[in-house]
């Protein structure tokens, strides 16, 4: 993948990565991991975390992780361990709604059912969504995964949230 442009601005554009995304058909079947980690860096906890062998890396620890979307069950384990906060999950619910799971490490922590601001990769406000569930890993340190119900067309865009109270 060409990442030189992304290295000039700090984020990827949807069109730069969407060819690596799971198909809409797969997204309708259920939750699936989407990894946005396009650079060769020495890091592999995602590969080690996957109980289904769905994440592979060519060329050892510096390889780029690739998800086998048929093996991936959307269990969230990889997203919980990713030090780079680069793993998201998504699924399509119906014709109008999708779910995106994003990491959240800020205060305040949103509550279930709460309406939040949806941010894209550049931090732009792209709309509102509702918190479906939160996952707080069993560690002393907080690092939330937040599942957001978003307008269907936004599953490729939403990558963070902001609490609006």
């Amino acid at each position: 993948m060409e990442i030189e442009k992304a290295m000039e601005r700090g984020y990827l554009l949807t069109e730069e990565i969407e060819d690596t995304f799971p198909s809409e058909e797969r997204l309708r079947r259920g939750m699936v991991a989407i990894i946005e980690c396009p650079q060769e860096i020495p890091c592999n906890p995602c590969v080690e975390s996957c109980p289904f062998g769905a994440i592979t890396m060519e060329g050892g620890i510096n390889g780029i992780p690739v998800v086998d979307y048929d093996r991936c069950t959307g269990c969230t384990l990889c997203a919980q361990v990713c030090p780079g906060h680069a793993i998201f999950l998504a699924r399509i619910l119906d014709d109008s709604r999708a779910v995106v799971v994003v990491p959240h490490e800020f205060l305040p922590v949103p509550e279930r059912g709460e309406e939040v601001k949806l941010l894209d990769r550049a931090g732009r406000d792209v709309g509102r969504g509702r918190v479906l569930w939160l996952l707080k890993p069993e560690r002393e340190v907080h690092y939330y995964l937040v599942a957001l119900e978003v307008p269907r067309e936004l599953w490729k865009e939403v990558r963070a949230l902001e609490v609006i109270r």
Binding site: M7, E8, G10, Y11, Q39, I41, G84, H85, A86, A122
Partner: peptide, 23 residues
């Protein structure tokens, strides 16, 4: 510099909070 020196994923974490990275 014309490009960010940090690991991409570290930069992406601040970019999605709306912080402009001006190369």
């Amino acid at each position: 510099m014309p490009r960010i020196g940090a690991y991409f994923v570290h930069a992406a974490k601040v970019a999605r909070r709306g912080v402009p990275i001006l190369t």
